[in-house]
Simulated assay, not measured.
Amino acid sequence: MFIYAIGSSDCGWEYPPSGATSTSCNHGGAVMQAAVFELGYGSSRIAWMGGGTLPSSAYLGSSPVCESFGELTFDCTAGLTIVGWVVDYDLSGWQGGFFRYQNTSTNSPFNTMSVQINIL
C-alpha cells in the first residue's frame, strides 16, 4: 500500500515516491484528491484528513489493478486477475495537512495496513 498520487487545482498531479512522508508541491485550491494504491483485497476502508475521519461522500471510487504476465496494469481486460485497487478520495476544501488511509485484509490473518502523507 502506498500513496499513488495527490492532485490539486494548484499543482496538478504529483506522484510521490513510495515511502514519501510529504508532497513536494504546495497543493490546495478549489479541488484536491488523493489516490492510494492497495495491493490485495480489504473490507474496512477508513480515510482521515487533518486528524478527522472523512465522510463516506469523500470516497470517489476504486479502479482495479490487474496482473498480466507478472506485471501490474491498470488495463484490466477480460481474463486478467484483479490483484488490487487504486482508491480515490475527494479532499476539496482542504489546503493541506496529513492524509491517512487504512484498510483491513479480507484474508487471514486479516492484517490492517495504513499509509499517510503530509500534503503541503
Results as ranks from 00 to 15, higher is better:
73 T>F: 00
17 P>M: 05
23 T>W: 09
10 D>W: 15
27 H>R: 09
43 S>K: 14
20 A>Y: 05
114 S>I: 07
109 P>A: 00
73 T>K: 00
36 V>F: 04
108 S>I: 06
87 V>E: 13
47 A>G: 04
94 W>F: 15
7 G>P: 06
71 E>D: 11
19 G>M: 12
21 T>F: 06
50 G>E: 04
98 F>L: 08
76 C>V: 02
103 N>L: 09
44 S>H: 07
67 E>C: 10
117 I>G: 03
20 A>M: 11
100 R>W: 15
66 C>H: 06
43 S>M: 12
94 W>Q: 12
48 W>F: 13
57 S>A: 15
99 F>R: 04
26 N>A: 13
2 F>P: 02
25 C>A: 15
38 E>D: 09
68 S>K: 00
51 G>Q: 07
105 S>M: 01
86 V>N: 15
100 R>N: 14
59 Y>F: 15
45 R>K: 11
20 A>K: 09
119 I>H: 08
111 N>Y: 11
10 D>K: 13
77 T>D: 03
80 L>F: 07
120 L>G: 13
48 W>C: 08
109 P>D: 00
74 F>P: 01
35 A>N: 08
113 M>F: 15
34 A>K: 01
50 G>H: 03
20 A>S: 15
54 L>C: 06
16 P>R: 10
95 Q>P: 13
7 G>I: 06
37 F>Q: 14
108 S>K: 01
17 P>V: 09
8 S>L: 04
31 V>G: 10
64 P>W: 01
117 I>S: 03
31 V>P: 08
6 I>H: 01
51 G>E: 02
59 Y>I: 11
86 V>H: 04
2 F>W: 14
96 G>V: 03
96 G>R: 06
82 I>P: 02
75 D>M: 07
24 S>Y: 13
79 G>M: 05
21 T>G: 14
5 A>D: 11
100 R>D: 08
14 E>D: 09
80 L>G: 04
7 G>H: 14
108 S>A: 11
91 L>Y: 09
98 F>K: 12
5 A>G: 13
114 S>W: 14
106 T>I: 09
22 S>E: 14
35 A>C: 10
111 N>G: 08
14 E>C: 06
67 E>P: 06
82 I>V: 15
104 T>V: 14
110 F>D: 00
13 W>V: 05
58 A>Y: 02
37 F>V: 00
34 A>Y: 02
59 Y>D: 09
89 Y>E: 04
105 S>Q: 10
103 N>W: 01
65 V>M: 07
46 I>T: 11
24 S>N: 15
